[in-house]
């Protein structure tokens, strides 16, 4: 139809999908066939087709997280053919389209795997560890009201842009999922460096990085060994530079803060 390649033919695919009842049970890969998949479908629309078929046949549909389907809410999180969010760089699962696959392909679909992300069901995982890390300090401690005029502190455009780029993290967890060490450093550093770059964040920069890193470790994420898979798989292009910024923020904070604990 509109906008599509008129020569693109519908595809038949074999799906190998991870099925797991809940976090306390063992999971396994189950094979499914889907037919007449349009190349213009999104990956999740292809899964919709599978789920509608399963439901009509009286089977249980595959549970997976998704919501906005425009690449910004960070809900979708599928490990497709051995890659976080599938083969296309800079793309969330929901923005991956079936034109990236070919008729007859076998596609393996797994949930994010990490000790800190237990499986809820099938392909849905619990990423609340990310929320707890933000709760540990990913904010500027101001109450509503009583703030100065927005133009009171000029911020160089270059700094504002870099802070913005760090702030575009969607907390999907692809960094953790693709990291051999299951490290959350890219996620944590994006917030730390956004607030460390902006003058508003300077007041709390030491306690913030100390507390957020402590919580990150407590959640059971691994340590960064600068492999770089996180940034390579990040759908919104969060840079490794943020991790370096966090490292120096942390060392500086530990060396100079008044916190003895």
């Amino acid at each position: 139809m509109a906008g599509s390649n008129p020569n693109a033919k519908p595809m038949n695919l074999t799906l190998k999908v991870w099925r797991q009842r809940n976090r306390n049970t063992e999971g396994r890969i189950v094979d499914y066939q889907v037919k007449d998949i349009s190349p213009d479908m999104s990956f999740l629309e292809m899964l919709d087709v599978l789920n509608e078929d399963l439901l009509r046949q009286g089977e249980e549909p595959v549970a997976f997280d998704h919501d906005c389907r425009e690449g910004i809410c960070g809900s979708c999180n599928l490990f497709i053919n051995g890659r976080a969010h599938g083969p296309e760089a800079g793309t969330t699962t929901c923005q991956l389209h079936m034109r990236k696959f070919s008729d007859g392909d076998t596609i393996t679909i797994e949930p994010w795997r990490s000790a800190a992300f237990p499986v809820n069901k099938d392909l849905s995982v619990d990423r609340s560890a990310f929320d707890r890390i933000i709760q540990a300090g990913g904010y500027i401690s101001i109450n509503t009201g009583g703030t100065p005029d927005a133009n009171e502190i000029p911020i160089p455009k270059d700094i504002a842009d870099r802070a913005f780029e760090a702030a575009t993290c969607i907390a999907c967890g692809a960094c953790v999922a693709s990291c051999k060490n299951s490290s959350a450093m890219l996620f944590v550093s994006a917030k730390v460096s956004q607030l460390a770059l902006l003058p508003q964040g300077h007041v709390e920069r030491k306690t913030r990085v100390e507390n957020m890193v402590a919580q990150m470790d407590k959640e059971g994420f691994g340590a960064c060994s600068n492999i770089g898979s996180c940034a390579a798989e990040c759908p919104v292009g969060i840079s490794l530079e943020n991790i370096a910024i966090m490292n120096r923020e942390y060392i500086n904070a530990k060396a100079t803060s008044n916190n003895l604990a």
Binding site: I140, T144, G145, T147, A150, I155, D161, Q200
Partner: peptide, 22 residues
């Protein structure tokens, strides 16, 4: 007008001009 002040104080990285203003 208060909303913008509030958000900037929270660290919302709005677009800025070269002079550093919003």
């Amino acid at each position: 007008v208060n909303i913008i002040d509030q958000c900037v104080a929270q660290g919302v990285p709005f677009a800025r001009e070269y002079g550093g203003l919003l």
